[in-house]
Simulated scan of single mutants.
Amino acid sequence: MRKPNGYGSIKKLSGNRRRPFVFVITKDGKQKAMGYFCSQVEAEIYAADFNKKNNKILHGHEIIFSELFYRWLPFYIDKHQPSKSTINSYHNSYKHCLSLHEMPLKKIKYYHLQDIIDTVKRKGLSYSTCKKIRSTLSLMFKYALMMEYVDKNYVMLLNLGKNKQKRPHKPFTRQKINKLCSNLNIEGVDTVLILIYTGMRIGELLELTKDNVYLRQKYIKITKSKTKSGLRIIPIHEKIFPLIQIRMQTPGKYLICRHDEKPYNYSIYCTLWDKIMLALNAKYTPHDCRHTCATLMDNAEVNYNAKRKILGHACSDVTNGVYTHKDIRQLRKAINKIK
């Protein structure tokens, strides 16, 4: 659609630039740059908002799927403060919706959305990936309804099919745990033990900053998690206390840092994980550590509510994430039951 006179234009600058797209307007016979952007969609959003503020609304302008995503995501981040891993998950889900990117929202029907799910399944991707895509679409279209961009939401009708696990999660055996303890000289092995004896999600560990580790009180405070109940206090098990002490003495803001003091992202950590598994002749995933922690607590007959608090599962007696000194002592006693 041709834009009206005076609306401004978007250009892509040459060269290898971090923000190659520029929105320009003509003022006093000269072109003036109003902003630089990483993508054309971000530039289009800025242009639409700029013209709306200046009473130059583009008649007949239809919001497309990609514009909705880039309008919704900053709104959601500002309101809910999701973790980096969650934000990355939204971006990955958006990439799977490539066929919708240029479609006007009001022309997107149920079968367009279902085709996204069906295509992902045909590619052999997991049930979990389908769930993440549906979740992202649901949040986007709830926002679209709120902003009155659409009057229908078909996402709730999507069919994901049955969950057929390709590889059920399995806990580490006692033999493998002992092998980890005797191979602490291998880079990263300490992180595996920390995951096992805290029950943290991998994203929670990678985003854990040192100011949320309380050595004197012997607990960790999780401030960024994929769920609200994941925001919690985790007591430090006596077996991993020395490992965390060593990590606290290394340079860097984050508990788990690379040699350049930068935090790991999931992809880079998985490379380290694979090297550890190869060195130990083991086949586990980072999430298996969480299952191991749950299994060890079950075997040690840890109190049900204490177990749920430590793992960050929804628990009826946790009120607004407030923990008393008595709570922390009880959780520390519970976690140290496992060996």
Rank of each mutant, 00 (worst) to 15 (best):
P251E: 11
R258K: 15
F241D: 02
A279F: 07
N303D: 14
M248P: 08
I234Q: 01
R290P: 11
G252S: 10
A279C: 08
I256R: 07
Y304S: 03
R308P: 00
P263R: 05
N305D: 12
I310S: 03
L231M: 07
N299K: 15
D298G: 08
N265S: 11
Y304K: 03
P263W: 08
L311F: 01
V302W: 01
D298R: 12
D288P: 06
I236A: 02
W273N: 02
M248Y: 08
R258G: 07
C257Y: 07
N281D: 15
W273C: 02
N303Y: 04
L272V: 13
F241Y: 14
Y254F: 15
T227N: 12
D298V: 09
L243T: 02
L243K: 03
Y254S: 04
W273R: 06
I268P: 00
C257D: 07
L278R: 13
A282Y: 03
T285R: 14
L255D: 03
Y304R: 03
I276R: 01
K307V: 01
P263L: 07
N303H: 11
Y254W: 14
R258A: 10
T295K: 13
A282G: 07
I246Y: 11
N299Q: 15
C293W: 00
K262Y: 11
F241K: 10
I234P: 00
D260C: 08
L280C: 09
K309L: 11
L296Q: 08
A294D: 09
Q249K: 14
F241Q: 08
N265T: 09
I233R: 00
K262H: 12
I236Q: 02
K283R: 13
K283L: 11
K228Y: 13
M277E: 11
W273V: 03
K262R: 15
N305T: 09
M277S: 10
K253V: 12
K239P: 00
M277A: 13
L243Q: 04
